[in-house]
Design a protein around this nucleic acid. Structure first.
Lengths: 230, 230
DNA sequence: CGCGATTTGTGCACGTCTTCACAAGCGCCT
DNA sequence: AGGCGCTTGTGAAGACGTGCACAAATCGCG
């Protein structure tokens, strides 16, 4: 499930604050989900809490980390050292949560050789060589949209089977390769939609006016407060 | 729907390449979704394509932009000018897709006064003054997790009703305020999970071994190829 | 003017996810 | 040892999203 990482983060917080056990209710609050949902998710793990007490924080962390495949520190290749790539290369959240940025690549010779966080930016053509030396299963694309598909192909060619794509475009990859997309502008646009909706609702208590004016009110938005969908 | 922004991006691409109309099939491919799903989404808009021809690209862009509330350029306040905040402040994808970063804030006096993209970083205490001058409805939090809740409270206090949160923590906000969360490490962990799953499946054709070893295979992952869920 | 090719809009059925509600189990206190 | 309160695990019901398949509609061409 896609919620496990959120549970894991909440659990680490709890562990740091000295909690040894936690109830489903407590963990659910910390992770921002329903307690029944959380229990069902954890039961899928084969995890066992103790009735009347709750879950053992340390044990649960181990279990989730195992299921997520975080027992080994996975090597990640980051392609595209522009504005966003720079930030990602320097983001310590990766290192602290089970990942190691193994190499930085860029197609721009201007950027090749630059050093970020003790890592030197390599030219993208060096990707096959580096991939042969280190086992890289995850690639991060932080290039402009125009270059993203080409980079994806190159990553797949050297054996990468999971890609995190920050470029605003759809990637086509072979079966067996997973792609997750993060588009920062889209996130804002979704918020803008809710803004517009809220504004329309307060301005027009009873829906009326032209077809266009009635549109946003007509769109059914089921439940979106505190959407944790990423 | 959360897919509208994706359609919009694909439509802009099509418009730039000279297309005046597009079929649901064509647009669905460009956006990475099913064509039936796309038609159903668009029908919710009250949008009308022409049977036998398709949709008018320009008209559809206008409609979607209207529904998303992008007819006005929305002002965004960005709080936290660290590694990630820096990148977000310089990201031109915001400006080109309907948003204007109106102000940058940070709590660190070291960073106050710094200039990024023609914008000067202000101290967070100036937020009320700036908010009074400009109508800011959307806030972006790019601070460490420890500061996020406090910043969220401050944003809500000055009338912000939509928050994009990059800090790895759950925010609690009053009803009527929308929060979207983007956690970069979580995205990687989800990919790691799929990696682990793929590795287990190839290594253990028939499930066997200890309970722990059998776990990842036992987790049902319905359909995740090319996940476009953000 | 009529016909065929094409594409939209949608009814329907299916599978999934979510939530409620409650029985079963565990520990603690007396 | 027994009872009581608390918490887990799960069955069932409902909401929701998804995709198929087809009727209705439009255009172009002869």
């Amino acid at each position: 499930m896609a919620r496990l990482p959120e549970y894991l983060r909440a659990l680490h917080n709890l562990a740091e604050t000295g909690h040894e056990t936690v109830s489903s209710e407590g963990l659910a609050n910390a992770a921002g989900v329903n307690s029944a949902k959380l229990r069902k998710d954890l039961s899928q793990l084969g995890s066992y809490g103790t009735r009347g007490v709750g879950y053992d924080v340390g044990l649960l962390i181990d279990q989730i980390e195992y299921v997520l495949g975080l027992t080994q520190r996975r090597a990640v290749a980051l392609v595209g050292v522009g504005n966003l790539g720079h930030a990602l290369a320097g983001y310590d959240g990766f290192a602290s949560r089970g990942f190691r940025i193994a190499a930085l690549f860029d197609a721009d010779q201007e950027r090749v050789g630059e050093e970020i966080n003790d890592l030197v930016v390599l030219h993208i053509d060096e990707l096959p060589r580096v991939a042969a030396e280190e086992s890289i299963a995850i690639g991060v694309i932080a290039t402009p949209a125009a270059a993203a598909q080409r980079v994806a192909d190159q990553l797949v060619a050297v054996g990468v089977t999971s890609i995190l794509n920050f470029a605003p475009c759809v990637l086509s990859v072979p079966d067996g390769v997973d792609v997750r997309k993060v588009d920062l502008a889209i996130e804002l646009q979704i918020l803008s939609f809710h803004e517009h909706r809220k504004a329309s609702l307060t301005a027009l208590p009873a829906a009326g006016g032209s077809a266009l004016t009635a549109l946003p009110g007509g769109l059914a938005v089921t439940e979106s407060q505190e959407a944790i969908g990423t």
